[in-house]
Simulated assay, not measured.
Amino acid sequence: MFLHLGADMVVPLRDVISITDLKSAQSGINSEFLKKMRDEKRIFDISENDPKSFIITTNKVYLSAISSLTLKKRAGHFQIYENI
């Protein structure tokens, strides 16, 4: 299954680690994490300069114009099955 992040970008749902509201990144550990990812050029802004959320995947961090709540609802529509 895939998760649509906006701006014609989809990622495999199995690669999504976290979907977080960007307002929570104003300070603290999220802010430090995003700064480090920016320095490493691992942030991809697909928000057209209006980011509302950030999505951490196994390889990249995406800034999306779609709210974290909406993205979580989209992801919640899929049930993930893993081999144990």
Rank of each mutant, 00 (worst) to 15 (best):
E32W: 11
M37I: 06
E40L: 15
R42M: 15
L63S: 00
D8E: 15
S24P: 01
Y62S: 03
N30V: 03
F54P: 03
R14M: 14
F54I: 02
K23R: 14
R42W: 06
P51Q: 02
I19Q: 11
V10D: 09
V11T: 11
N30G: 06
A65W: 02
S53L: 08
M37P: 04
S53N: 04
K23N: 07
Q26T: 04
T57Y: 11
R38T: 05
E32I: 13
L22N: 04
I17P: 02
I56W: 11
K52S: 01
D45K: 01
K35V: 05
E40V: 05
I17F: 08
I55S: 00
L34N: 09
V10I: 11
L13T: 04
I29R: 12
A25T: 01
E48I: 02
V61F: 00
S64G: 09
T20D: 11
R14P: 10
I56C: 14
N59V: 03
K35N: 08
D8A: 15
V61K: 00
M9K: 04
F44P: 00
N49H: 14
A7Y: 10
I46H: 09
S31R: 13
R38M: 09
K35C: 12
P12N: 13
F44L: 07
I56E: 10
T20E: 15
R14S: 14
V11A: 10
S47H: 03
K41N: 15
K36H: 10
K23M: 01
E40R: 12
T20I: 14
I56P: 07
M37T: 03
I66N: 06
D50N: 08
I46R: 02
K41G: 13
V10R: 14
A7G: 06
N30W: 03
